[in-house]
Every structure is written in structure tokens, then in C-alpha cells.
């Protein structure tokens, strides 16, 4: 995606793997089986949390970068 000029944010539980693989906009999120899910929350809370994760990803594609970055998890 990035090579073709499309800024792409990656939500993943395995940020180190993403870095090695060459992703540029990396965000720690969730667990391996559900990167944008949290079954321990109630459904409403989970949706609100997920909205927050997606918002962070959107901010990442709106952030100019010089090199790959793992965005902080807050």
C-alpha cells in the first residue's frame, strides 16, 4: 500500500513482527486472535473501544512520517 502511495495503518498485537515485515504505520491493538476486539468488555464498551482503535489508526494515516513508526498505545 505505502509503496503505491496509499498511507496504511496496521492494527496488530505483534508490533515487532510488523516492524520486521516493513510496515510503516504500526499500532499495538488487541490480541493475536482479535486485533480490534475485546471479548472481555460488554458489547457497547467493546464497540466504543474499537472506535478508539480505528480513530488512532486514522490519525496515523494523517501523520506525516520520515520512517517506520510504532505509534504509542494511548
Amino acid at each position: 500500500m505505502e509503496k503505491n502511495g496509499i498511507p496504511a495503518a496496521l492494527l496488530t498485537a505483534m508490533t515487532s513482527m510488523a516492524k520486521v515485515a516493513g510496515a510503516n504505520r504500526i499500532l499495538a491493538s488487541g490480541l493475536i486472535p482479535h486485533a480490534v476486539g475485546d471479548p472481555s468488555r460488554t458489547l457497547d464498551e467493546e464497540i466504543a473501544w474499537r472506535k478508539g482503535q480505528v480513530t488512532k489508526a486514522l490519525n496515523a494515516v494523517a501523520t506525516p512520517l520520515d520512517e517506520a513508526q510504532i505509534f504509542p498505545d494511548w
Binding site: I6, A9, L11, T12, I32, A35
Partner: peptide, 13 residues
């Protein structure tokens, strides 16, 4: 690009 997309959100497991 053909469909006019300008940004992507990816999720991995």
C-alpha cells in the same frame, strides 16, 4: 487506486 481509495486500515492476527 482505481476505486479512488486514499488510505487503508489493516488488521493482522
Amino acid at each position: 487506486i482505481a476505486d479512488g481509495v486514499q488510505a487503508a486500515i489493516l488488521t493482522s492476527t
